[in-house]
Design a protein around this nucleic acid. Structure first.
Lengths: 168, 168
DNA sequence: GGCTCTTGGTTGACGTGTCAACCAGCAGGT
DNA sequence: ACCTGCTGGTTGACACGTCAACCAAGAGCC
């Protein structure tokens, strides 16, 4: 039987490059627009978007992590910076002394409310408006298939990094 | 006339999230595989791939920049690191004393030749194999449309950063 | 109560990418 | 020749994300 070819065919290669490139270029463009007309980073925006969608404007860090699919250390660094900018505060959770609550401050709410409309316009301009509704649905289906496959085929976990597994 | 809605519809939002997420998750996965089974970074891989495709194994930095669509400073940092790893050397270009040539070293060629087959397998496993040829072509067309739009609608250039435009 | 295990979060170090500044060398005009 | 501008490349400072180590507080069990 023929083994799988080592290389991608020109057509496959083109598909692969287009896929990676399109996303990357689009992400770069949107980041620059966002930063230029609102001073927010993509990371800032994501945090503020999630927080502002929650009535209380306050979430445990753990939940933020889960919603954003971020590593906890990344969230910790990011929230420290945002606290210095006055967008949020980290306060201790009375229900669990280990946990910390991330609370949206007025400055943070103002920032996201100022930034969001223009950002959404840019998403439309560079993505949504280029596709018919049917194409949009196809694209969603294919991308979700890729995501689904990644989810059900997890990365081989790195044999717990904490305990160094020594024999004294 | 109805103005454009400020927010994305649920369907649009889903499409947008799937697009961004699928690419990001896939990129993360491939980076981890690559690093784990060949010790190469994505950036290393890209450089080595381009160099190894050229018969001479040597290119002016400027051309590498253009091929990879990288910033020149990024290339400079990256090539310095890779020179320290012994994958490449930077040598002066006899034809133009400003320019520097990036030359692939044997260790670099060995590295890319060892890494490529497994990397291609991973691209197939997590991307190509999930799609029928027809779907692959559709996806290519849509992604290339997005790329084309970005290309013909360039980011408003930042009023030349170098000259500070002062009035003495 | 004590003992261990787990969970939630922080920190520091490191590799990477971007930006602005800088510098040397080429090119064009006079 | 000279001056001016442009081009190719390097550097340093900074923001970001990942990893491993660490710490403190809960949970489970004797």
């Amino acid at each position: 039987m023929p083994t799988e070819p080592t290389w991608l065919s020109p057509r496959e290669d083109r598909a692969w490059r287009a896929f990676m490139h399109a996303h990357h270029q689009l992400a770069v463009r949107l980041r620059r627009h966002l930063l230029e007309d609102s001073g927010l980073t993509e990371a800032d925006y994501e945090i503020l978007a999630v927080l502002s969608e929650h009535a209380t404007g306050s979430l445990p860090a753990r939940e933020l992590c889960a919603l954003l699919q971020w590593e906890k250390s990344r969230l910790s660094h990011q929230t420290r910076r945002m606290q210095e900018h006055g967008f949020i505060v980290r306060e201790t959770n009375p229900a669990d002394a280990r946990s910390s609550m991330i609370r949206l401050l007025p400055a943070g709410r103002r920032a996201i409310e100022d930034a969001a409309p223009q950002h959404v316009r840019n998403v439309r301009r560079h993505f949504i408006d280029l596709l018919t509704p049917a194409e949009l649905d196809i694209l969603t289906a294919l991308n979700e298939r890729i995501l689904g496959h990644l989810a059900e085929d997890p990365f081989p976990e790195h044999s717990t990094p904490d305990e160094p597994a020594l024999s004294p």
